[in-house]
Measured scan of single mutants.
Amino acid sequence: TTIEWNGTKITVDNPQKAKELAKKIAKKLGLTVKVHGNTITIE
């Protein structure tokens, strides 16, 4: 699972952990999480 935001890509083996990490990042930055299959985008 890949997390993408602002040109940065982070690959996380565990999809559940990836989703939790994305939510934490999005919350800190005041952004939203969008899931597209194996890609999680923070916008």
Rank of each mutant, 00 (worst) to 15 (best):
D13F: 12
I42C: 02
T2R: 03
I25G: 00
N38G: 06
I42A: 01
A18K: 00
V33N: 00
K23W: 14
K24I: 13
K9S: 11
V33Q: 01
D13K: 14
G7M: 06
A18L: 04
T41Y: 15
T2A: 08
T41V: 13
N14G: 05
I10D: 00
K19H: 14
N14V: 03
G37Y: 04
T2D: 07
A26D: 01
L31Q: 04
A18I: 04
K28V: 10
K19L: 15
K17F: 11
N14K: 04
D13R: 14
G30W: 02
E43D: 09
K19Q: 11
P15S: 07
K27L: 14
W5M: 06
E20N: 11
E4N: 08
T32V: 14
T39I: 13
L31A: 12
V35N: 03
V12R: 01
L29P: 05
K17N: 06
K24D: 06
E4L: 12
L21H: 02
K23M: 13
N6S: 08
K27I: 10
I3F: 05
E20K: 13
T11D: 04
I3M: 06
G30K: 05
V35Y: 12
K27P: 00
L21W: 13
L21M: 09
W5L: 08
I25F: 04
T1P: 07
E20R: 15
D13I: 12
T41F: 15
K27Q: 14
K27D: 14
Q16C: 04
Q16F: 11
K19E: 10
E4G: 07
K17S: 06
T39E: 06
V33C: 04
T32P: 06
D13P: 09
A18V: 03
A22S: 02
K23Y: 15
N38S: 10
G30E: 02
T32G: 05
P15Q: 06
T39N: 07
A26N: 03
T2F: 09
T1V: 14
L21E: 02
T41I: 14
D13E: 13
K24C: 14
V33F: 08
K17C: 15
A26V: 04
L29I: 04
G7V: 11
V12E: 01
T39H: 09
I42D: 00
T1M: 14
H36V: 13
L21F: 09
A26C: 07
G7R: 05
L21A: 02
N6L: 13
N6M: 11
T2M: 09
G7A: 06
V33K: 00
N6D: 07
V33H: 01
G37A: 05
V33S: 02
K19Y: 15
L29C: 13
K34S: 11
H36N: 14
K9Y: 11
I10L: 08
T32F: 07
T41D: 02
K9I: 13
A26Q: 05
W5S: 04
V12L: 13
N38E: 03
K28Y: 12
N14Q: 03
I42Y: 02
K9G: 03
I42S: 00
I25N: 00
E43M: 15
N6A: 09
K34Q: 09
K23N: 13
T8C: 15
V33R: 00
I3N: 06
Q16L: 11
G30A: 02
T39Y: 10
L31D: 01
K23F: 13
P15L: 13
G7I: 10
G7K: 07
G37N: 07
Q16I: 13
H36Q: 12
T2V: 13
I3P: 06
T1E: 05
I10N: 01
T32A: 09
N6H: 12
L29S: 06
T2C: 10
N14Y: 03
V12P: 01
K27N: 11
E43W: 12
T11V: 14
K17L: 12
E20H: 10
I3Y: 04
K23S: 09
V35K: 03
K19A: 11
D13G: 12
Q16M: 11
D13C: 13
T32S: 11
K24T: 07
A26Y: 04
K24V: 09
A18C: 09
K27E: 15
V35F: 12
K27H: 12
I42L: 15
G30V: 01
N38A: 07
T2L: 10
T1C: 11
T41L: 13
T39V: 14
E4V: 13
Q16R: 15
K19M: 15
K19D: 04
T1Y: 11
K17V: 11
H36C: 14
A26S: 06
W5I: 10
N38H: 08
E43H: 11
E4I: 15
